[in-house]
């Protein structure tokens, strides 16, 4: 996939770029409004990660520019402005998603993957990972044509893992993805473990390889290596 990161904060830009850089991905980044406009008018991307507050202009204007020229690039707005108006304006203007800073890179990756899936799999709603195949419309998971019955949260967890394959995903990130902001009243994240245990068991029973690895007690890694 081809991704453009428009973000003026150097630290964040570098982290995102690093997280998305892997074999098969092309990842570019710009830090100012003018550079961004020049870039989006020249090249097409599968997904543009767009910060609202930029030196030289507003990310909203870049979005308008894209839509005026009928470019179909996926757009994910990342903004520290947790204001409802901005969010609604962004989505009204045709952004595909909105993520408030700060966020976990794994969450960003999952959202970007979802956008690209929606854009590129038009007519084909099947997501394939080795012997796993996921019907995104029916929300059904198969391992070598064996149907696996997953709960809502297990299904969400699997999608999250596949979007972040090869990466260590922290327990915090998983908890926030599955339970949202309400997660902070939990004592610990042990109950995540039971979800992961169940998912892993169901996949193994259906004949899948063991892709889920625990990682230093901090998180999990979904990998086929």
């Amino acid at each position: 996939m081809k991704i453009l990161i428009i973000e003026d904060e150097q630290g964040l830009r570098e982290s995102i770029e690093e997280y998305f850089s892997e074999a098969g991905n092309i990842c570019e980044s710009v830090s100012s409004y003018q550079d961004a406009i020049a870039r989006v008018n020249l090249y097409r991307y599968d997904c543009i990660i767009l910060d609202i507050t930029l030196p030289g202009g507003s990310g909203i204007d870049i979005l308008k520019n894209l839509k005026e020229r009928n470019h179909t690039d996926g757009v994910l707005i990342i903004s520290a402005k947790n204001s409802l108006d901005d969010k609604l304006e962004g989505l009204d203007l045709g952004a595909d998603d909105y993520l408030v800073k700060p966020f976990h890179l794994s969450e960003l990756r999952a959202r970007v993957s979802a956008i690209i899936r929606r854009k590129s799999f038009s007519g084909n709603n099947l997501l394939q990972f080795n012997e796993l195949s996921i019907d995104l419309l029916a929300k059904a998971v198969k391992v070598n044509d064996h149907q696996v019955k997953l709960t809502r949260k297990e299904y969400a967890l699997l999608l999250y893992f596949i979007a972040n394959k090869g990466k260590v995903v922290s327990k915090n990130a998983i908890a926030e993805h599955l339970w949202g902001d309400g997660i902070d009243m939990a004592n610990n994240f042990d109950f995540i473990y039971s979800h992961i245990k169940n998912l892993r068991k169901k996949l193994l029973e259906a004949g899948s390889h063991d892709y889920i690895q625990a990682s230093y007690g901090m998180g999990y890694k979904f990998t086929d290596q």
């Binding site: 904060e9 630290g11 964040l12 982290s15 995102i16 690093e18 997280y19 520290a80 947790n82 408030v100 800073k101 700060p102 966020f103 976990h104 890179l105 794994s106 990466k167 260590v168 922290s170 990130a173 990682s215 901090m218 998180g219």
Partner: peptide
Amino acid sequence: LTPIAVINSKLDSLLQ
């Protein structure tokens, strides 16, 4: 929130 976002993303990167 921007510096917090940076810390957060750096932690995620460190984890890798």
